[in-house]
Amino acid sequence: MRFSLFFILIMPTLTLAEGNSHSKHSDHSAHHGHEGHVAMDYVDGTATELDVERFGKFVADQAGNQIAVVSVTGMVCDFCARGIEKTFQKDEGFKKIDVDLETGKVLIAFAESAKLVNQDIEQKILANGQTVTGIQILQAQ
């Protein structure tokens, strides 16, 4: 059921950016997660979770823009995570950000023309005190 939900809610609005090698994980499959979330296992055995409804709301007005889905560890405090938002707000092409403390996910929307580099995103989050465990760059449609 949630597998279907994933494709209904997410796949029509997002595609992996073609020729973009930002993702640490080249392939994934979705399976049942807990309430309101979709869990995805990647080929290297790691897993991530997305809050489907939250994700859908975030990308709803971002057609054409790039969405960085960043998995972060150590993001246990709102006040501490606030620095992530402040850092990315300074980036050229930044549109908006969403921080999910529960799942450890940071969603960052950038303009289609923005040049995104995985290492740059990792370093900015590391500089704020958290650790990046995975990044996917998607394109909202």
């Binding site: 150590g74 450890g104 958290q130």
Partner: peptide
């Protein structure tokens, strides 16, 4: 020293 995990720091 810093140790980050999914649910702790």
């Amino acid at each position: 020293d810093r140790k980050n995990t999914q649910h702790s720091q």
